[in-house]
């Protein structure tokens, strides 16, 4: 059975269509928007009822923890002068520190981020920047 040219083209079209769908089609919940704290403060309506990641610096003096528990933290993060309150129910990672960078995954509920995941930035880089105190750069 020799495949006719039409069949070959039809097969190629099916494959191309499938790849296109996979790569550029509906990415679904696997893709999250990544924003900086000030963007959320400036346009909160953009972030209601969906999960996203937010990046900012933990504001010194704002970290509170419910007494007796292991987790349940509230604090504020800031970026370019804009502050955003956060609630994190879990225990924070060791790398979490006031003034440090965090990336939170969560939702915006009543003006506060209800975070479900937290990564305190830095340990991932093989080579740190020369100035460890540098503020996160928006690129």
């Amino acid at each position: 059975m020799a495949l006719s040219t039409t069949t070959q083209f039809a097969l190629a079209a099916v494959v191309a269509g499938a790849v296109g769908f996979l790569v550029w089609g509906d990415a679904g919940e696997g893709v999250l928007e990544y924003v900086y704290a000030d963007e959320v403060v400036e346009a909160p309506e953009r972030f209601t009822a969906r999960e996203f990641q937010v990046h900012g610096l933990v504001v010194e003096g704002t970290v509170r923890q419910k007494k007796g528990g292991a987790g349940d933290y509230t604090f504020e993060i800031e970026y370019e002068g804009q502050r955003l309150p956060v609630h994190y129910a879990d225990m924070v990672p060791d790398t979490f520190a006031e003034g440090g960078e965090v990336v939170l995954t969560g939702r915006l509920i009543d003006g506060r981020i209800e975070a479900t995941e937290m990564s305190a930035k830095c340990p991932s880089k093989y080579e740190e920047q020369d100035d460890p105190t540098r503020a996160p750069k928006r690129t």
């Binding site: 990415a27 679904g28 919940e29 696997g30 893709v31 999250l32």
Partner: peptide
């Protein structure tokens, strides 16, 4: 102009 992160679920799905 839009920053996104891709999570494991996106890859696993396909």
């Amino acid at each position: 102009g839009e920053r996104v992160v891709i999570r494991e679920t996106h890859y696993n799905h396909y």
